[in-house]
């Protein structure tokens, strides 16, 4: 008995040590990013010293004061607006699609589900050119609205996880409501939705984040329209060949500024995120 107890203690200590080492490995780049964002000199990407020799806050303040070329505050607002709009639209579209495929029965259901699944397997780049020209034809070229449409345009294809979640809600609940004379529309809004908090939050969270991290689609859509850039593209631009020397530390500062809210969101919503994706992601 005593033997197995010591064995367990040893195992626990080893686990904690191992976890600590892993945490250090995972956090080191993050810490490096933080340190770089407070580095004063040199401003370039390849400092000799791994820990900055001189420290400053100016990388942060200059993001908000020197806005002639890199208008960080404006890009931040752009991203916020696009993120809010597209996460509302995406969430609605995704949940509606998932609900239809999970709860409603109609002739085209299976073929549609398969087709949508297959569509997701094409690499997206090439079609971006066409998307740009379609948006231009509608008269939305290089606008924030077009960005919202691009981010939510594919929402239906992400029905997978949410459908998995809806599948776990017992059918008997719906049937009972139907006997009471509720329409399907009422069932969706008044019964299914309130039961689906985790998946709603999961969808909101993931769709809110995507405008903050995408730099490819936005560059295809915005091209030379600096005013309508998002933070991600703006930051990416700071590392372009001609800017990297002067802007690397500011890039780090900007990156920290967008990482903080996202991190807080994640930590706060972690529980829902996990239950959303595990309920949905694991199932067909």
């Amino acid at each position: 008995m005593k033997n197995s107890k010591t064995k367990r203690t040893v195992a626990n200590v080893v686990s904690h040590v191992f976890l600590t080492i892993l945490s250090i490995i995972w956090l080191l780049p993050v810490v490096w990013l933080l340190m770089q964002s407070f580095r004063e000199t040199p401003t370039g990407a390849f400092p000799k010293a791994i820990i900055p020799t001189t420290w400053t806050l100016s990388n942060y303040t200059r993001l908000f004061t020197e806005t002639d070329l890199f208008n960080f505050p404006r890009w931040f607002m752009n991203t916020l607006v696009v993120a809010i709009a597209s996460c509302i639209l995406t969430t609605i579209l995704t949940l509606l699609t998932a609900y239809a495929f999970s709860r409603l029965r109609f002739k085209a259901r299976k073929p549609l589900m398969n087709v949508i699944l297959i569509l997701g397997m094409f690499p997206g780049f090439m079609s971006m050119i066409a998307v740009y020209h379609i948006l231009k034809a509608i008269g939305l070229a290089q606008s924030l609205l077009s960005l919202v449409l691009v981010y939510s345009g594919g929402a239906a294809m992400g029905y997978y996880v949410a459908k998995g979640f809806f599948d776990t809600i017992p059918a008997s609940i719906d049937e009972a409501a139907m006997l009471d004379g509720a329409t399907k529309n009422q069932i969706f809004w008044q019964i299914t939705m309130p039961l689906s908090k985790p998946i709603v939050i999961y969808t909101v969270l993931t769709s809110f984040i995507s405008p903050w991290v995408d730099f490819i689609f936005v560059s295809v859509i915005m091209k030379d329209n600096y005013q309508n850039y998002t933070v991600a593209l703006g930051l990416y631009q700071m590392l372009a060949r001609e800017n990297i020397d002067a802007y690397f530390t500011r890039f780090c500062a900007g990156a920290v500024l967008i990482a903080i809210p996202i991190t807080l969101l994640f930590i706060k919503m972690q529980k829902y995120y996990v239950s959303g994706i595990t309920a949905g992601g694991a199932k067909g």
């Binding site: 040199p42 370039g44 990407a45 390849f46 400092p47 000799k48 060949r241 990297i244 020397d245």
Partner: peptide, 9 residues
């Protein structure tokens, strides 16, 4: 270029 300017610096 970044390597050059940093190295010279």
């Amino acid at each position: 270029d970044t390597v050059l300017t940093a190295g010279i610096q």
